[in-house]
Design a binder for these strands. Sequence first.
DNA 1: TCTCGTAACGGGCATATACCCGCAACCCAT
DNA 2: ATGGGTTGCGGGTATATGCCCGTTACGAGA
Lengths: 132, 132
Amino acid sequence: MSVPCICTTLRSASRRMIAFYDETIAPVGVNIAQFSLMRSIARVEPVTLTALGRRVELDRSTVGRNVRVLEKMGLVELGRGEDQREATVTLTEAGHKVLEDGAPLWDGAQKSLEDRLGVEFMRQLHTALDSL
Amino acid sequence: MSVPCICTTLRSASRRMIAFYDETIAPVGVNIAQFSLMRSIARVEPVTLTALGRRVELDRSTVGRNVRVLEKMGLVELGRGEDQREATVTLTEAGHKVLEDGAPLWDGAQKSLEDRLGVEFMRQLHTALDSL
DNA sequence: TCTCGTAACGGGCATATACCCGCAACCCAT
DNA sequence: ATGGGTTGCGGGTATATGCCCGTTACGAGA
């Protein structure tokens, strides 16, 4: 075989990395998808589900559902925008705290990867993945 | 920020690539996860769920469920091994046909990526991802 | 041979993710 | 102001994925 399927490789690597980050971030009570989404919310809150979905490149319905899980956990609040159709999301205090507490854990994971792989390698990998 | 989070980047790239390959392989009626799993099965059939799971680095229960979907689609058959605990999987004729029909589509996707990104780049990316 | 530890499943539970449909709110042009 | 196209959601449906628990089958040692 010439080049192994990049999709399979990518999915596999993604699962491994998710497991690694999930474990890393677990102490604050969320998984990496939730933590990542909350970080996105923090940057633009209050934000509508559709806008958030576009930002994180996820289907709107996916964002809606994931956000509702966070709402049950008390980490975000849902409200209505001026446009009555819009559902807006904002982080609660607890949500902000999770981000704060999780940041060093996240950084630690990042650091441990950098130590193992090298900053330059990771930078290149990041650029490569973004080009896909 | 120094290096952007490789996990987020990876998850995002993975979703995009899955979407791309799903679309590519759709004409034969399966998604890329199913196609990929079937290819793995083809290489070692008959195989037990646990062995297959180890091979593709997926939880045994995940493999079991995914295989059952394929079974409902008539693409694989489940049986019992000598060890009565073991559930063995084999591809049906229809399953083999899907692999045959899907191969050129899969190759086409691979080729189109190679054209866009270059073989060398993809080789390196593959190596990089495997090292994660 | 009987027992106990281990291995393989199946099912339950939860999240992530996408697509589609239908409803309600909005907005623009007539 | 009203009718029609557009936009934003929620819910339904389906797959992918992981973890945990209970059951059953095996196998090795007493």
